[in-house]
């Protein structure tokens, strides 16, 4: 039964929702605007909102000073590679935990999650030394490895919860219908888990793309992804707000576009099971 809501209430709550949405979005908007200002205007008080001299010079400077495309390529490799490897490991792991659990499955899951509670900085020195010894510093392989391991617990957990939602009966029905394990996986399990798998994939790409701690500490130039690219504008030669904004805008643009196109999938996946 739909509740009757007065038009006035709809108006008020719609306005409130837009206000909150705008407040959350405002810093991003401000950053994008600042990236089109001159350095002087970016600093000025009171700040100008829309009526300033629009310029693209910051973008030109940024591209000149550092190779955006190179960093973006590194980001794609690191985010994509670590996600792909994590999924390859996590899907079979989550399947077996959800459908053939052993006595230790619960403990294993908890232990995996507990590794995420430890502050990464606690293992920075040992990992740094290991990476130096094995020549993994500032390599794409090294970054893929560390991000993959870092996100694996979350990926396994997410997939596990999605798979858990699939009734065992349906898999057994497929078995009774004469499906072998492989066909049961292809024709029944995977199609039913697609929303979960897709949203896990998307979330993991976003997490890996935005990850700054390990990428900043373990890479400097060769393998540096966009996080390092942004960071390079934040300290040297004083503060250049406009240029920093331009760099940041460039760095988040791809993930923003990806998020925009996949938002329906993401929301559906993240609330999967909760609504049913």
């Amino acid at each position: 039964m739909a509740r009757r809501v007065s038009p006035a209430r709809i108006c008020v709550s719609t306005a409130a929702a837009w206000l909150v949405g705008f407040a959350i979005f405002f810093p991003i908007l401000w950053m994008v605007l600042a990236s089109f200002k001159t350095e002087l205007e970016a600093f000025s008080t009171p700040p100008s909102f829309l009526f300033f001299h629009w310029t693209l010079e910051n973008y030109a400077t940024v591209q000149q000073r550092s190779d955006y495309l190179q960093h973006a390529f590194n980001s794609v490799v690191v985010a994509g590679g670590s996600t792909l490897i994590a999924m390859l490991i996590a899907i079979p792991a989550a399947w077996s935990m959800a459908f053939a659990p052993s006595k230790r499955t619960k403990d294993t899951l908890l232990w995996m999650l507990s590794t995420k509670m430890m502050p990464p900085v606690g293992v920075l020195v040992p990992i740094y030394l290991l990476y130096r010894t094995f020549g993994l510093l500032d390599t794409l392989g090294g970054l893929v490895l560390v991000l993959c391991l870092g996100n694996l617990p979350i990926v396994v957990w997410m997939l596990f919860t999605y798979f858990k939602e699939i009734p065992k009966d349906i898999l057994e029905a497929a078995r009774m219908d004469g499906a072998t394990v492989g066909r049961e996986l292809i024709y029944v399990l995977t199609p039913m888990a697609v929303p979960g798998i897709a949203s896990t994939l998307l979330l993991n790409v976003i997490l890996a793309w935005n990850e700054a701690f390990w990428t900043l500490n373990l890479s400097s130039s060769e393998a540096a992804p966009l996080t390092v690219f942004i960071a390079s504008y934040s300290s040297p030669e004083g503060l250049f707000w406009a240029r920093l904004s331009a760099a940041s805008t460039l760095a988040i643009a791809p993930i923003l576009v990806l998020g925009w196109f996949s938002q329906r999938q993401l929301v559906r996946g993240l609330t999967f099971g909760a609504v049913k």
């Binding site: 009966d169 349906i170 029905a173 078995r175 009774m176 004469g178 499906a179 072998t180």
Partner: peptide
Amino acid sequence: AAAKRGLSMVFQSYALYPHMSVRGNIGFG
């Protein structure tokens, strides 16, 4: 294996394949 015994089963929960049509469900075996 259950798949090779040549028996068929009707479950209490029906256990239909939610992503397939009725045609697909009946024809799956």
